[in-house]
Measured scan of single mutants.
Amino acid sequence: DHDVVPEDKFQETLHLKEKEGCPQAFHALLSWLLTQDSTAILDFWRVLFKDYNLERYGRLQPILDSFPKDVDLSQPRKGRKPPAVPKALVPPPRLPTKRKASEEARAAAPAALTPRGTASPGSQLKAKPPKKPESSAEQQRLPLGNGIQTMSASVQRAVAMSSGDVPGARGAVEGILIQQVFESGGSKKCIQVGGEFYTPSKFEDSGSGKNKARSSSGPKPLVRAKGAQGAAPGGGEARLGQQGSVPAPLALPSDPQLHQKNEDECAVCRDGGELICCDGCPRAFHLACLSPPLREIPSGTWRCSSCLQATVQEVQPRAEEPRPQEPPVETPLPPGLRSAGEEVRGPPGEPLAGMDTTLVYKHLPAPPSAAPLPGLDSSALHPLLCVGPEGQQNLAPGARCGVCGDGTDVLRCTHCAAAFHWRCHFPAGTSRPGTGLRCRSCSGDVTPAPVEGVLAPSPARLAPGPAKDDTASHEPALHRDDLESLLSEHTFDGILQWAIQSMARPAAPFPS
């Protein structure tokens, strides 16, 4: 592969990997390779389809078979030569091979799209000592099968071997295949498990690692696999990028399955594409389908809103127990993405979901129960707010008499603000006073009005108090039968009158 990737590009890729991570280095090298001529790309395919690569990765054979028959990708048995050289000459001794072996032994695996480039050397060096003999053996194999790289107009793939297949390693990572398949204008990513390549439709969760975000852009890794992070704060999961590491605690105790298979379609829109997988259930989501939507993949363990709600429900009964003089119970939860139609709101002032922060849900004790107040519409209280300059209440639009249902020339009671006709409430011909108009209920007259088809109010509507207090003497005590009587009149003013009279009014101040 030294004929494909020059030394300066190799060093530039290593520097970019240390600065921005393996995914960015892979993407940059792939983009550079696509700008080369067809001879360089053909050399790339020839390096990929060597015999030892085909033996190690069985899924490469179907890719090789898909090439046109007129494309010669065979390799000479006596060494490598550029395709432009007409004579089959043995190339001179390859010093770059020693360079590659020494550099890969030092860096474990470079971040390139060629056999030198995919593992994360920093994480491997940190986690190597417990498994040094086995990992050293794996390093000797890295130059042979560490990076199976493929690129063409139909298929483009980048393979990364790992030393996680050490025997006896619980939940060992089998390997990473960062794979971009450009077929019919689409893009897919796969993962390699035990020599087999699994596409998103049959993606397997190998051991402790999972394909957290099938994305090839942005600074985030394709698999949430930063070796420096180790395990999740809650004892979460091992990262795919942690090559040759000792077994780590796999999943939280509440995880239903340690080796679950995540779905390959969004649980909201039932469509495929780039998904984020939940650590607590097999569901996966688009970032845009979450509520609120996320802009980037959160670091650490992530769970959907259903799993978060289940966790909150487990903690909430203990938080609601009476604990005198104790601060509110704080339950730190990872930043969760909410699927459509589901929402768990945190306290005000918290950062938005999706940031690399930890939301704190506070379970406050329930407030003391209070008697429910009568629910009145805002339009129902409008007549009470229509007060004239002299303190006389004006008529609201649409006000109707509670007896006849007519809204023409209605009066407004100064005591309960109900609309009424003087002739309907006082049919006996009582003279109307000039000021202080009161309806039949507030004036103490319980004589029913002779209106055909309208039920008369119940005599129990009024329960006047002592006459010594004029204001308190007109406080009506309405009961269920009074409400039914008012409802039978089918008037809004009657219902409003009952609601206003049912509310307690402050006692009249004593004259000074």
Rank of each mutant, 00 (worst) to 15 (best):
A499K: 01
D279H: 10
T331N: 05
C442L: 02
V454I: 11
N394M: 15
P506Y: 00
F492C: 02
R432Y: 14
E314S: 12
A507F: 04
D469P: 07
C404S: 04
Q392C: 06
A463E: 10
R270Q: 13
F426W: 04
Q497F: 01
F492I: 03
S339R: 12
N262Q: 10
D445M: 04
H421W: 03
C304E: 15
V315R: 13
G388Y: 00
S291V: 10
A251H: 09
A467K: 07
E489G: 03
A449F: 01
T435W: 14
A366C: 12
H479P: 11
L384A: 08
N262P: 11
A366R: 07
F426Q: 12
E274P: 02
S502F: 04
P383V: 05
T358H: 12
T491F: 02
V410Q: 03
P293H: 07
R295T: 07
G300I: 07
P335C: 15
G429W: 08
D377M: 04
G300D: 08
G494R: 03
L359V: 14
E484Y: 05
T447C: 12
L337G: 11
S245I: 10
H479F: 13
Q501P: 02
E320F: 13
R323T: 07
S369W: 13
A396Q: 14
L373R: 10
A380V: 09
A248R: 12
A504T: 14
L395C: 07
C442V: 02
L487P: 01
V446C: 12
D470N: 08
A288K: 11
R345M: 02
G388H: 01
L287Q: 08
G494L: 02
G241A: 08
F492E: 00
A507V: 11
L352C: 14
T471C: 12
L252C: 08
P347E: 09
L250H: 12
P249W: 11
G346N: 13
C413Q: 01
H479I: 11
D469N: 07
P466F: 11
D481I: 01
K261C: 10
P256H: 13
A284P: 13
D470T: 14
E475S: 02
G244C: 14
A456R: 04
A310P: 09
L352W: 15
S245V: 11
C281P: 11
G300A: 08
P253H: 06
V329A: 12
G405S: 13
Q316G: 12
S431T: 07
G436A: 04
L352N: 06
T301H: 07
T447A: 05
R423I: 11
E475I: 07
L308E: 09
S245D: 08
G405E: 09
M503V: 04
K261W: 00
S441Y: 06
C266T: 06
Q325N: 12
E314C: 12
E452M: 00
E350P: 08
C386T: 13
D469Y: 14
G272A: 04
D482T: 02
A419G: 07
G354A: 13
Q243A: 12
P317A: 12
G436W: 11
Q243M: 10
P459I: 12
T357K: 11
G272V: 11
V312K: 13
L333A: 06
L496P: 00
P450H: 12
C266S: 06
G434D: 06
T414S: 13
P466C: 07
S305Q: 09
A340V: 07
P253E: 10
P464F: 10
A366G: 10
